[in-house]
């Protein structure tokens, strides 16, 4: 049984930008897409070790929504956490956190 944490209202999020939430002790990067979907991945950038992924630029690669690390510009799928462009380094995928919107509230669960 998934335990959801309400982190904020959807209206608190800007389209195509992220915020950081604390979910059961995890730092989570939560993003609102242009179509109002909400997706969440780990906040820690595996390449720099800094907690910064919520501050990356949101975009698309083909049909897949992506985020780019603001630190060294690796690119991941926000949907699967797969590293799409490791920038010449070994690929490290991200942990994906289940997220959904319920009645205007953003809910995130620990995986």
């Amino acid at each position: 049984m998934t335990r959801w944490t309400a982190v904020c209202a959807l209206a608190d999020l800007d389209p195509e930008r992220g915020v950081t939430a604390l979910v059961e002790g995890h730092q989570v990067a939560v993003f609102r897409l242009a179509d109002d979907r909400v997706l969440a991945v780990q906040q820690k950038d595996p390449y720099s070790g800094a907690n910064v992924l919520s501050r990356g630029i949101v975009g698309s690669a083909g049909d897949v929504a992506t985020v780019t690390s603001p630190m060294y510009k690796q690119v991941w799928s926000l949907e699967s956490g797969t590293c799409l462009d490791p920038g010449g380094k070994p690929a490290h995928d991200l942990v994906v956190f289940p997220a959904r919107v319920d009645d205007g509230r953003v809910l995130v669960a620990a995986p």
Partner: peptide
Amino acid sequence: TGRGCVICKP
């Protein structure tokens, strides 16, 4: 096309 990326958005 699409929703942009770290190259074109800035």
